[in-house]
Design a protein around this nucleic acid. Sequence first.
DNA 1: CTTGCCGTTTGACGCAGGTCAATCTGAACA
DNA 2: TGTTCAGATTGACCTGCGTCAAACGGCAAG
Lengths: 250, 250
Amino acid sequence: MSALSSAISSAALLSALRGCRMFESLGSAELQRIAEFASLRRVGRGEFLFREGEPTSGFFVTHSGAINVHRIAPDGREKTIHIFRKGESFAEATLPDGSGYPAHACCVEDGHVVFIPRAEFLDLLKIRPDLSLRMLASMSQHLRVLVNALDDLTQKDVETRLAIWLLKRCPQPITSDPVEIKLDITKTMLAGELRIRNETLSRTIAKMRTLSLIESKGRTVRIQDPLGLADWLAGTSRATNHQEQVRMIG
Amino acid sequence: MSALSSAISSAALLSALRGCRMFESLGSAELQRIAEFASLRRVGRGEFLFREGEPTSGFFVTHSGAINVHRIAPDGREKTIHIFRKGESFAEATLPDGSGYPAHACCVEDGHVVFIPRAEFLDLLKIRPDLSLRMLASMSQHLRVLVNALDDLTQKDVETRLAIWLLKRCPQPITSDPVEIKLDITKTMLAGELRIRNETLSRTIAKMRTLSLIESKGRTVRIQDPLGLADWLAGTSRATNHQEQVRMIG
DNA sequence: CTTGCCGTTTGACGCAGGTCAATCTGAACA
DNA sequence: TGTTCAGATTGACCTGCGTCAAACGGCAAG
């Protein structure tokens, strides 16, 4: 790699690191330090970052695009654990014990990821205890997400789950101004993320359309009145307070 | 408290700490250090350790008994996140951000818990980076558990979930020797842990009894042939490899 | 333009598990 | 010995979602 392209990629790397919640409170010096051993990588749809069982070499931060972390059920079907997007890190849980990645990670939308090698990062942690705390915070984030997923599943009702998913991608705070949401992934992938089959998603969207809660065409969903949708959610006492849909316990 | 009882409780505390997976690799000196500010506490069935929304004062380690960590759904129903037993710690995820406990914790079987106050432990972490790594490992454990719970839910089939639950409490490795399992909690609580209603649990147990997979009377479940049960599990391709039922990703 | 593929939509159907309600069991206590 | 009450069981019913199958739309390669 030429010195020039190296410099360019380094700048991009720094900006990518800065975009990651886990590192957002770090100063330039620390980021520079991490950038020394991290690397920015372009990923295309369908490309695997790692496969279940592979020895863990490090963890990732999504800079753009979307990564589907999933397992394969014994019947051969894909079971999505979570789809990671801009700013989200994944597989940090593999840092402590190097016992192999416990799932597959496959790109479902073109983008860039930062790769952070395990050994070097562990060394850094040893001399930067505050960074460990950030890591802990990040992992508790993930725990929260998962607990919410559990909530969503037991509190069943696909309409509710879809409504929550949509409201999460509306500009916050929620207003009554129409919002147009471009899906960044296929509806089949979205179905996977909601842990339902695509037929069910299709029907649910149709149903919500007839209720005039949303409009949809292709990969675009229009919400005429997000606040109204939120009210509908609360009104039918379908969801727990989805403002604080982000909570969990160890 | 007298000097004597203090000494006794201190010894009990140390032994309790030693029994916790999170601390198992620590030496006596470190444990002693933690014991200085941790405290052992007796809890009775029905007693709450904390409630959702309360400011986080620290986290817990179950020494004996069982603690049900759960939320209350808007319809007023209890939704179990996880039941923590001997050696398991919970609410460590609240360490980084002191934003209040995100769930309720209620004792469902008499026992003892260790309470580890937040501020003091954070101070300790700052000067003991290796302890941070242990914390990270512990949290990734929890992540694994949750991911498995997700797996179990989507891979539905209550019979499977119950069978896995039972096999997990058989002496490892699984043999063909009969095992008798005493439930440490009510069947209603167990139903909550499996995320089903107690009627369904009742029916499922009945069904497995007619299949001669188990016998049951009151709070005791007898498994004539655990290996056979495991085979039945694998045979019907019901579960993912439940040996490695312990895996996950960030 | 045709062909094929992939993702989506729609219909018909089945079933596991939730719900409601009634009954049963057993431990604690008077 | 009876009373009480929480938990467990059992039955009847309902429904949301998975499943199977067929058809449709759009896009890329030939």
